[in-house]
């Protein structure tokens, strides 16, 4: 077990290192380099040369890379070009909000998708199963922003149930203080993953229904409810754990769209505004942090899987 965890950890560190190399390469693909991006199109050649010397951009690439790596490792992601604020302070401000949004929508996803998938599997090929399958098809194919737009149009514009904009003030507190403004963003972000998760849950329960251990439990006289919730559910939940880890990038990307629709000042909105303003230090900082979070999430999912499922080969 310890060996497996260490091996997975080493692999994850390797992946994070490759991510930093990729981001470093991206940095050097900026038209005219970092100097041109920061100093603007009217900077003279002398100014650019000066900037490069000051910031070490005249050194060999591998020296630059390791210096950059050291900066990143100590949480120094540079300075936003447009917002006149260090990227790390921006991330500290915005990241908790995105994490809370992501966690709330993941919680909603699991609360809805798991029972839905179980119900569909137990009552498979009945009208309800077909309807749920059809809906999950549609939500899986619908762009998040379309769902968000329709949600605003229907629930905010026509029915007036919820405000069309997320809470604007700083910090995580307002999310809970003005929860009615969070309903639409959370549901919008959750719908796509509900569609995916419920399909997985359905086929996972179906796979388990005709396993030998189920027949054994039934033969021993366990009631159908007990078989379902005590025996099948525990096994059927296993793929969901992996899925939780795997869905992190999708949550972050979905958060980008959701945050831009509902003007929710989280990391996704920060990234989008940075992308529009070519504020590359912010973009790269967000990319590194989300990639790191994703790798960590996958690692956590794999480790908890190994702990929970004795069949995972260690």
């Amino acid at each position: 077990m310890i060996g497996y965890i260490l091996r997975r950890l080493a692999q994850s560190i390797l992946v994070v290192l490759v991510v930093t190399i990729i981001v470093f390469i991206l940095l050097h693909q900026l038209p005219g380099g970092a100097a041109r991006a920061i100093l603007g199109p009217r900077a003279t050649a002398a100014q650019i040369a000066d900037f490069n010397v000051q910031n070490g951009y005249n050194q060999p690439l591998f020296v630059q890379y390791f210096r950059q790596l050291g900066d990143w490792a100590t949480g120094n992601f540079g300075f936003s070009i447009k917002l006149n604020q260090s990227v790390s302070s921006l991330l500290v401000q915005r990241m908790p909000k995105t994490i809370v949004l992501g966690l709330l929508s993941l919680a909603l996803t699991v609360i809805v998708a798991v029972p839905l998938g179980i119900y569909q599997a137990v009552h498979r090929n009945k009208p309800f199963d077909y309807i749920a399958t059809g809906l999950s098809f549609i939500f899986y194919a619908a762009p998040t922003f379309f769902i968000g737009l329709v949600a605003i149009e229907v629930f905010s514009q026509n029915l007036g149930w919820f405000p069309p904009e997320a809470p604007q003030s700083d910090g995580v507190g307002p999310i809970f203080a003005q929860f009615d403004a969070m309903v639409l963003p959370i549901v919008t972000l959750a719908l796509l993953s509900i569609a995916g998760f419920s399909r997985y849950m359905r086929s996972s329960v179906l796979d388990n229904l005709d396993q030998d251990y189920v027949r054994t439990a039934q033969a021993k006289g366990a009631s159908p409810t007990r078989v379902l919730y005590h025996h099948i559910l525990r096994n059927a939940m296993i793929p969901i754990i992996t899925l939780l880890g795997l869905s992190l990038p999708a949550i972050f990307a979905g958060a980008l769209i959701t945050e831009s629709i509902f003007n929710f000042p989280g990391m996704g909105l920060l990234f989008w505004q940075a992308a529009q303003a070519s504020d590359y230090p912010v973009e790269l900082g967000v990319v590194i942090i989300t990639a790191f979070a994703t790798v960590a999430g996958n690692l956590l999912a794999d480790i908890s899987l190994a702990v929970l499922d004795p069949r995972v080969k260690l």
């Binding site: 490759v18 991510v19 990729i22 990038p249 990307a253 990234f271 973009e283 994703t294």
Partner: peptide, 22 residues
């Protein structure tokens, strides 16, 4: 394959947005 893992761990939309700004 670690390269594949690394690129997969960057949310694709972020990568695309960055590429499109270049």
């Amino acid at each position: 394959m670690r390269t594949v893992d690394a690129i997969l761990s960057i949310p694709i939309l972020f990568l695309l947005l960055f590429l499109v700004t270049i």
